[in-house]
Design a protein around this nucleic acid. Structure first.
Lengths: 336, 336
DNA sequence: CTGTTAGCGCTTTCAA
DNA sequence: TTGAAAGCGCTAACAG
């Protein structure tokens, strides 16, 4: 039975307005009154009712977060950053996962909007095809996309395309010529598309013909699919993976194919999940500042909220990534 | 500018009560009225205001979740189960991470309570020392502990102690005699304590003297600490790890010590994170039904909520675990 | 079956 | 500096 402001007021012998002020504008009441109210409130275990406050002020001080999944540590790390920044700004968060499904993204946005969130951070499958974003814009609720990149939306991301092109260039320098890319379903993610584009560009820049993309729709069959490619006589000597989880599965596929990593096969990931550094072999990867992406996203919407201004696409920011060179990547076999 | 029930009523030419009924008790209005209301609501993009509803009904249909961290896939997997079960029961969730810190656990509970959650699922460091639980019980909000195990609280967990004792027995059967345990700070987690107890029991049952616990307080130094133990001439031939993340680091430590896993060193984890199956070597581990633990926890509090009854400690349930035999564990060196 | 109305707990003018 | 009172959007008696 939560105590209400009424009880505190009665017990303290002041009006509810005074109790409210004592909490929200401590300077607008006499120090004596304030202390009295605070003491009584503490004694009664009074906690302001968030719903009532939200209803009255039309601000919930809650941020909604829509993520594909928490099972990929990338997003878990990002969420950690979001949570920290939100807390620092006096906001609570309510995260919902969409499982990379469009209708779930929409459901999540609806749920969050109904829940009176003041703003949203979201990672969508593909901004171009997202119906949820349209609804969001119409609702007039500030939002920013994390990881996604799109000219019509405010985004916090890294240059995925450039990063992968660089990776290819590095591999070429290490003597690799047969370089293949491993990706999840391209259609399901704008990031996968950007990364693949970077792969194609990198190969073109090196004057190499890109082999067919190894597209693995289901994680369950990923290892098999990759192993199949590794069984070919002209198998690649290096695999560029669209994310770290795929890189880990690539390493497993190599193992099952009796190929040593990195001696017989180099593997490079993308994301920079913390776990990658503890693996054996340690994962070479394009490390994104996952936590910062979250933090920065929050800061953008909090600023918009504070200023009462809309968030425009030109608020977008590209955060720096770094290539984390580690054991899973080395010279091509036979390369001096 | 979210449309209110008033607007829908006016536009449809009915009273607000009718609109409310059309949404909450569709059978209590004429089909014609219901369709009219639904159509108008859709046209106006009406979404019921959650805060107003909560304020009025005193039920938020929101469950609070307190977890140590999402960076450990164990809890991310559990949260996935929680989210699914909550959604199925018509509840939203708001998860908060506590970073294994007591004061954060308390902060989280306070925040959640202020946020009007109807019930809570929590994973605390140690139920015995948790001040948050006392506050919770007093608040009269139904809650259940996940993973924790304590006679005075309703808990959903596995028999950690028995599981580890079994692991030791298995290792002994494989010829291992020098078996050591790797754990995080014992004081920080009741699970770590239970698992260690299981280790001691397993060793005692086998008539073996347990070597000192390898306690690694900080993840950053875990690999070094473990490697140090592996450098000793009477180094263990098997490592029982209190969780999968430690097992992964143990494998890395072995690698840095030029010890092959499992040929020179067997490593067994605990938790059963999905990733473990894709690693090389694939992780031997005590697999907990992480998702089910979450699901089951939710079901307990939802039932309590529905029945209006308190949740007693005797509602606790022990879920089955399975030993997942995989590549990281094998015969002791030289054992036929 | 439908409408009127009180009030959930809080903030915020407006007066005193 | 403080208090009285209106009202945020909704649901649930209670009437009709």
């Amino acid at each position: 039975m939560p105590t209400s402001i009424q009880n505190v007021a009665a017990q303290a012998g002041v009006s509810v307005a005074t109790v409210s002020r004592a909490f929200n504008f401590p300077d607008k009441v006499t120090p004596a009154t304030r202390e009295l109210v605070e003491r009584v409130a503490r004694e009664l275990g009074y906690v302001p009712n968030a719903s009532a406050r939200t209803l009255r002020t039309q601000r919930s001080r809650v941020l909604g977060v829509v993520l594909p999944t928490l099972l990929n540590p990338t997003f878990a790390e990002c969420l950690q950053g979001i949570a920290a920044a939100a807390a620092a700004g006096g906001y609570a968060i309510i995260p919902i996962t969409s499982g990379y499904r469009l209708e779930e993204e929409e459901r999540a946005v609806n749920l969050l909007l109904a829940g009176n969130v003041d703003g949203l951070i979201l990672v969508v499958s593909n901004p171009s095809t997202s119906t949820a974003l349209e609804r969001l814009r119409k609702a007039g609720v500030p939002y920013v996309l994390a990881y996604n990149r799109h000219p019509e939306h405010p985004c916090v991301s890294v240059d995925s395309e450039g990063a992968v092109a660089d990776v290819v260039a590095r591999l070429v320098l290490l003597g690799h010529r047969r370089i293949a890319m491993v990706s999840g379903t391209l259609a399901a993610s704008d990031r996968a598309q950007q990364r693949y584009r970077g792969f194609l560009r990198g190969m073109a820049d090196a004057g190499l013909a890109p082999p067919p993309l190894i597209e693995v729709p289901f994680v369950e069959t990923a290892v098999d699919a990759i192993a199949r490619t590794l069984a070919a006589p002209d198998r690649p000597t290096a695999l560029v993976c669209s994310n770290d989880l795929l890189a880990i599965r690539s390493i497993r596929a190599a193992h099952l194919s009796a190929l040593a990593v990195p001696e017989a096969l180099s593997v490079v990931g993308f994301d920079g999940i913390a776990l990658g550094e503890d693996l054996t072999p340690a994962l070479s990867t394009v490390a994104q500042p996952n936590s910062d992406i979250g933090r920065h996203s929050v800061e953008l919407v909090v600023q918009a909220l504070a200023g009462g201004i809309a968030l425009e696409p030109d608020a977008s920011v590209l955060l720096p990534h770094v290539f984390r060179a580690a054991e899973s990547c080395a010279n091509a076999p036979g390369f001096a």
